[in-house]
């Protein structure tokens, strides 16, 4: 049986997948149902390789990150010790790839917006390719109340003015209550105990 290779290119990114049709499911000779290996070339970095699980995690992480990035939301995606993690940096994005083999340092890939767009294009092309019948198991591109649910910075900036106003009002009232007023008579002790004339005479 011939092994199938499909290639997806976009400027600085090239993704190659290899696999076989799953004949038990009645797939045709041009379709890939069993993905054996994949290779991802990013200009300036060594070739990345892995198995199906790694590719699923890569696609899921990058796609979700891009989706949120488009909505202006900057957040780290991917588990801290997981195989793929992506986070925004000053001028671009940092992808951290951890090998499943021991004693191998994580690979850090810094890409700019243009390279992110190239990468997501290749991953999308693979996901939407009707010749590749692999379940990517991704739920994305659903509109969400991002700003209200996740963007705490947005909430803080929206609520900071009324909260500050309320706090300053409370502080002002409190200060006025503790300021000493010389015109007011303060009686701290028990009232008229032994000081008025009657009580003195009685004594």
């Amino acid at each position: 049986m011939l092994r199938l290779n499909y290639q997806y290119d976009r400027n600085s990114v090239r993704l190659i997948i290899q696999g076989l049709p799953d004949l038990s499911l009645g797939q045709s000779a041009e379709q890939i149902g069993i993905l054996s290996t994949w290779k991802l070339d990013l200009v300036g970095y060594p070739t990345l390789e892995g198995n199906l699980e790694h590719l699923q995690i890569l696609i899921s992480t990058i796609t979700q990150y891009t989706r949120y990035y488009l909505s202006g939301f900057r957040k780290t995606f991917g588990e801290l010790d997981g195989p793929v993690q992506i986070r925004p940096i000053t001028k671009g994005h940092l992808i951290i790839l951890r090998s499943s083999k021991e004693n191998i340092e994580p690979l850090e890939v810094k890409i700019d917006d243009a390279e992110l767009v190239d990468l997501i294009y290749c991953l999308d092309s693979l996901r939407y390719d009707k010749r590749v019948l692999v379940d990517w198991n991704i739920v994305i591109n659903q509109p969400k109340r991002l700003k209200h649910k996740l963007n705490y910075f947005y909430l803080i900036t929206q609520l900071s003015s009324p909260i500050l106003g309320l706090l300053s009002l409370v502080l002002t009232i409190f200060l006025f209550t503790i300021i000493y007023d010389p015109k007011t008579e303060y009686n701290y002790g028990p009232k008229n105990v032994g000081t008025d004339k009657k009580s003195l005479l009685a004594n």
Binding site: R67, L70, S125, R127, I140, N141
Partner: peptide, 10 residues
Amino acid sequence: LSVGPGGVDR
């Protein structure tokens, strides 16, 4: 980011 097969959905 709107370019490509997934761009319309995004």
